[in-house]
């Protein structure tokens, strides 16, 4: 199993959450709002390329809009392999987090 970095994990989750609208700018916006911090283009693009190469995400060319200066989008979607990987990570995370009780029960 590939070890995912925290960032890669977050990007994969963002791709899942955004469904058909998952392209670079939307991912960036989504993560920026959720995490309340600004992500740079490179910080998303680089991991995305690695994930794509590793076969966890798939890419297809989307429509072109005037807003983009007439250039098309690259729409990302999770592959089966990617979904399975996320599933596994959830299990790992839950196990790891289960011992941490949280603020109210301390």
């Amino acid at each position: 199993m590939k070890t995912l970095s925290r960032r890669e994990e977050q990007i994969l989750l963002a791709v899942w959450a955004l469904k058909e609208d998952a392209y670079l700018v939307s991912i960036k916006k989504y993560l920026s709002t959720v995490m309340k911090q600004n992500w740079t283009v490179g910080a998303i693009h680089k991991p995305l390329r690695i994930l794509e190469k590793a076969g966890y995400v798939d890419a297809s060319i989307g429509e072109a809009t005037a807003k983009r200066g007439g250039r098309s989008k690259k729409i990302y979607s999770l592959t089966k392999k990617g979904i399975m990987l996320l599933e596994e990570y959830r299990k790992i995370n839950e196990t790891l987090w289960s011992s941490f009780p949280g603020m109210e029960t301390r």
Binding site: Y23, L24, V25, K28, V41, H45, I61, A64, T65, K67, R68, G69, R71, S72, K73, K74
Partner: peptide, 9 residues
Amino acid sequence: ILLGDYEEL
């Protein structure tokens, strides 16, 4: 594609 992304932003 990336140029498009940058332009959108």
